[in-house]
Simulated assay, not measured.
Amino acid sequence: MLYTIAVILLVLWILGLVSSYTIGGFIHILLVVAIVMFLVQIVSGRR
Results as ranks from 00 to 15, higher is better:
residue 32 V to I: 10
residue 16 G to Y: 06
residue 19 S to T: 03
residue 9 L to R: 12
residue 25 G to E: 05
residue 25 G to K: 12
residue 5 I to D: 11
residue 14 I to F: 11
residue 32 V to M: 04
residue 43 V to G: 07
residue 2 L to V: 06
residue 35 I to D: 02
residue 6 A to N: 15
residue 37 M to N: 13
residue 45 G to R: 07
residue 8 I to M: 14
residue 26 F to H: 13
residue 5 I to T: 11
residue 2 L to R: 15
residue 1 M to N: 10
residue 23 I to G: 05
residue 47 R to I: 00
residue 29 I to C: 05
residue 32 V to K: 03
residue 36 V to T: 10
residue 26 F to Y: 15
residue 5 I to Q: 13
residue 15 L to Q: 07
residue 2 L to P: 01
residue 38 F to A: 03
residue 47 R to D: 13
residue 23 I to H: 04
residue 20 S to G: 05
residue 20 S to P: 02
residue 3 Y to S: 13
residue 45 G to W: 00
residue 37 M to G: 04
residue 44 S to K: 07
residue 16 G to A: 11
residue 42 I to C: 09
residue 14 I to M: 09
residue 2 L to K: 14
residue 43 V to Y: 13
residue 4 T to A: 13
residue 15 L to C: 12
residue 47 R to Q: 04
residue 43 V to T: 05
residue 29 I to D: 04
residue 7 V to A: 15
residue 33 V to Q: 08
residue 18 V to K: 01
residue 29 I to P: 01
residue 38 F to R: 10
residue 1 M to C: 06
residue 10 L to P: 07
residue 35 I to M: 12
residue 15 L to W: 00
residue 35 I to K: 05
residue 37 M to H: 09
residue 36 V to K: 06
residue 21 Y to W: 12
residue 5 I to L: 14
residue 2 L to G: 14
residue 28 H to W: 01
residue 39 L to M: 05
residue 43 V to Q: 08
residue 16 G to I: 00
residue 39 L to K: 09
residue 17 L to K: 07
residue 42 I to Y: 03
residue 18 V to S: 11
residue 19 S to K: 03
residue 11 V to R: 13
residue 39 L to T: 09
residue 26 F to R: 09
residue 46 R to M: 08
residue 8 I to G: 02
residue 39 L to R: 06
residue 39 L to D: 12
residue 47 R to L: 00
residue 41 Q to K: 10
residue 17 L to I: 01
residue 30 L to Q: 13
residue 11 V to M: 14
residue 47 R to V: 00
residue 14 I to W: 00
residue 1 M to P: 08
residue 15 L to P: 00
residue 16 G to M: 06
residue 2 L to E: 09
residue 14 I to C: 01
residue 43 V to H: 12
residue 4 T to L: 03
residue 14 I to L: 15
residue 12 L to N: 02
residue 47 R to C: 08
residue 44 S to N: 14
residue 25 G to D: 06
residue 22 T to I: 08
residue 28 H to E: 10
residue 2 L to C: 03
residue 40 V to T: 10
residue 25 G to P: 04
residue 7 V to D: 08
residue 18 V to Y: 00
residue 1 M to Y: 07
residue 19 S to H: 00
residue 14 I to Y: 05
residue 47 R to F: 01
residue 19 S to I: 03
residue 45 G to T: 03
residue 41 Q to D: 04
residue 25 G to Y: 09
residue 20 S to H: 06
residue 40 V to H: 09
residue 44 S to I: 08
residue 3 Y to D: 13
residue 31 L to F: 04
residue 33 V to Y: 03
residue 41 Q to Y: 11
residue 24 G to V: 02
residue 31 L to Q: 10
residue 35 I to A: 07
residue 37 M to W: 01
residue 7 V to M: 14
residue 11 V to Y: 08
residue 27 I to N: 03
residue 13 W to L: 04
residue 10 L to D: 11
residue 16 G to F: 12
residue 45 G to D: 04
residue 41 Q to S: 10
residue 41 Q to A: 09
